[in-house]
Amino acid sequence: MVVRLLYFAWLRERLGCAEEEVTLPAGVDTVGALLGWLSARGEPYRQVLTETARIRSAVNQDFASDSSPIRAGDEIAFFPPITGG
């Protein structure tokens, strides 16, 4: 299935990518599985995305966790803990 990925703040800078579309193999159907699949693509994904304690996620613009399901067409975002206000 095809999903859209967004990266923000230092994740965006260190990956050198703000947004990409990826085709996921069967079985990659949660945020946690997606992080594992992305890390397996090699650097810089492996290094950046394994800092899991410092990474937050959202699916279709709602905060998500590793167990959150993902479906074809979803917009999945990865970012650091929030520092606004």
Partner: peptide, 14 residues
Amino acid sequence: LIDWLKVAAPFWKK
């Protein structure tokens, strides 16, 4: 509102 803005609205400061 400001307490929640700081933790639940997706902003990042550099």
